[in-house]
Design a protein around this nucleic acid. Sequence first.
DNA 1: ACAGAAGCTTA
DNA 2: GTAAGCTTCTGTT
Length: 986
Amino acid sequence: MKKGDHLFLVDGSGYIFRAYHALPPLNRKSDGLPTSAVLGFCNMVWKLMQDARNTDVGVVPTHFAVIFDYSSKTFRSDLYPEYKANRSAPPEDLIPQFGLIRQATAAFNVPCIETEGFEADDIIATYCRLACEAGADTTIISSDKDLMQLVGPTVGMYDPMKDRQIGIPEVIEKWGVPPEKMIDLQALTGDSVDNVPGVPGIGPKTAAQLLEQFGDLDGLLARASEIKQEKRRETIIANADKARISRELVTLKNDVPLKEGLDDLVLHAPDGPKLIGFLKTMEFTTLTRRVAEATGTDIGDVQATAVTVERADTAHGPDVGAGAPPVPRPTAPNDAGKPAAPVRGEDAPPQGDTPSLLSALRLEQASARKIDISAYAPIRDTAALEAWIAEARDAGILAFDAETTSSDPMQADLIGLSMALATGRAVYVPLAHKSGNGDLLGGGLVENQIPVRKALALLKPLLEDRSVLKIVQDMKYDIVVMSRHGIEVTPFDDTMLISYVLDAGTSGGHDLASLSEKWLGHAPATKKELAGSGKSAIGFDQVDIDRATAYAGEQADLALRLWQVLKPRLAAKGLVSVYERLERPLVPVLARMEQRGVSVDRQILSRLSGELAQGAARVEEEIYGIVGERINIGSPKQLGDILFGKMGLPGGSKTKTGQWSTSAQLLEDLAAEGHELPRKIVDWRQLTKLKSTYTDALPGFINPGTNRVHTSYALAATTTGRLSSSDPNLQNIPVRTAEGRKIRSAFIAEKGHKLVSADYSQIELRVLAHVAEIPQLKQAFADGADIHAITASEMFNVPVEGMPSEVRRRAKAINFGIIYGISAFGLANQLSIPREEAGAYIKRYFERFPGIRDYIEETKAYARENGFVETIFGRRIHYPEIRSSNPSIRAFNERASINARLQGTAADIIRRAMVHMEAALEKAKLSARMLLQVHDELIFETVEAEVEATIPVVRKVMENAPMPAVSMSVPLHVDARAANNWDEAH
DNA sequence: ACAGAAGCTTA
DNA sequence: GTAAGCTTCTGTT
């Protein structure tokens, strides 16, 4: 090894445990052998080796080794018998993976290094020293803090899971001390996992501060009597011996005897067939394909190789502590495998329950059937398409997916359609692929594609056939695209929505790739792989038809497979009606709302942009005048330095990255103390926010074809059942300030029309009164009284008549607080009062409304027991972390679950209103069209002459929305009015 | 080109 | 104290 060489040392043992816990469980399809850590490991090593061939990357390994622990018995146990003594046995399904990962290392043609009596960390330390002496650089592939002491000018670390480099600055940033002081820091803090004692009560923050003050551990122990804090001084003096022995334990040994010298670690190119043989055996299809492509190997030519699966009792290497219980044998083959074994009662299938049995069966079948994306066929002539359509008619069920050029369904051009009618049996109908040469004249249609009009004419009867169920992932997108071609796809099931109904709140999204990973253990090809990303991305119409067929066919195939797995689970969990009444029927309603769009006045926005620019420029000059230099006001960092550094204003809190907070709240407080600069900054922020987010951005969303703005509503984005709006978000258009409301006035009705806005009054508090059965609140709502005033009157014994506004304001904050899962901390913040006072308010509130305390306690207990809460319509919202041992995580989940019942029920109510609305308007022969939804508000556009007739219909549908599923004990109230623009209508 | 933090908008 | 999405800055890819 010589200067300029670069040694990569992979902390194999560390990686195994981290990968096991971080990655979703994965089992080999053929026999259930657990392989998630092996796959993680192979992906990582492969990526590192790929980077090695990519000279653009600054770091190119010339030498490479994977280091493992040999056994847990090391010289440290002699030094301190308790070292790592309370380690428990590794999880059962991890055990066979230790050996497999060693075999993987060999398959990669990389040395696999372990030495009896030493930990991997010591071996790594030794190689680091040798490489350093040879003048070479080293990168340790690990994020273990125990290795950070090795970081230096020629030694860095790299965290492969977070893709993060760790050098000297990162160590200082994370631990507050440079790498050479990490040993002393660890000696003080100890390590509960490894049973390194440290000094009790000293954590990383304190340790760093002490080392800063006293230089190093010896200095600290020698001068411990100088420590000011009495308690801390005593514990450090009393535990000096523990600190010293801890230092010995955490100090890595860099003179381990090694069999392999540095020159034995030279990196060789992987042996394609050997590696592919191993990967094939592991059944890692995606990685096998990648490796085959990169090494130019034909997968079919390679035989799967035999691997040895070690049994638990013979496996060496896993960190089984001296006193650990015997390791149980793995039970192979595993059960259906994915996802992991149920943890909550709700997942345990009731015995003999048919839907549950079907769910389990389907899941088993899904993981058994392989996904081969080369098996899909293109359909390029009408005869083949007609044959397929006939077959689909017989099958009565068809998964499909539209391939287009844009994620915006209003702008997207249809390029092709994929369809599947049985697992593994999918086709792709290319319609508008262009030849890729891309010159200005060329780029014509690729030959042998059925003309779009012809294909759609053939497909229309099938897609609209009431006896053929269409299965789609994210149906709303396809409805919008297909309806622009005159096709009304029906009936349908949407796998995204089924997943959302089943699993809202559990980790992971409801997009096709996440669902495929979760239920089928399969990572589908990505659009990025197909068409690139960013500026160099090509349109789907430029993609080669064979590649498009593989990609699109897989999308349809996966949707079908997911439907087979997920649909029976709805019945098994009693969630069919949530899906059929609150989710599925809303899809076409939202699709129509998105397609209609809303009219926005360009002139108003442009004029506002001008005014805002002028205003901001004026304030900007004033700020520069006060500050004395032209700082970037938009940079909180620079702002903090100026305000609390240069100008010496009293700084408040720091953000979690250690920056001074410059939040509006804090600046307002400073302004109230008479400082003029903070006020101006707040003003500047308001002006620039309105300009950049709204007046400048909105015109860009006006569709040139329709001259209207078409937002996109996400049905499965929130945990509680609310919708979300994006591109643009029309659910956060300003309303609180007069300046902001001017933006609302740019949302206008078409000529001869009016906008009608109808919003639920206090819907969440009404839901609370109903579910918690609070007599006073119910009565107040029945009387149409001022709910916050009534609350204040109950709490503070003041009459509603002539109540000071401050008293009502406090009651209002408490009411909101209840909905948010109140805490004294939060209420105190909101009202700017001491926490004790806020706590007293809450106590008093609960005395007056004991039913609400019961509601809160009951909700927490239910969530803890079941792992989810339900709305009054049966929607489930999961809180898998509600039983966390971390008190702040637990408290957060408790508050969220209290809120979710209320927010989720309100969301269900307006969903029901939206589902019923169109038919009600039609029945009343009204032409009003629903345009927007903002959580508790619906906005319609209607011809002027029908305004008076429309409002009562809208109000009635909204107020009666819970019926007949639920009859609420509290009336709902809807305010509605009409105007020429949204500001005046609201 | 992208990701995370900070900040701000809504219900 | 709940639930979202968007913009800017900043640092890294």
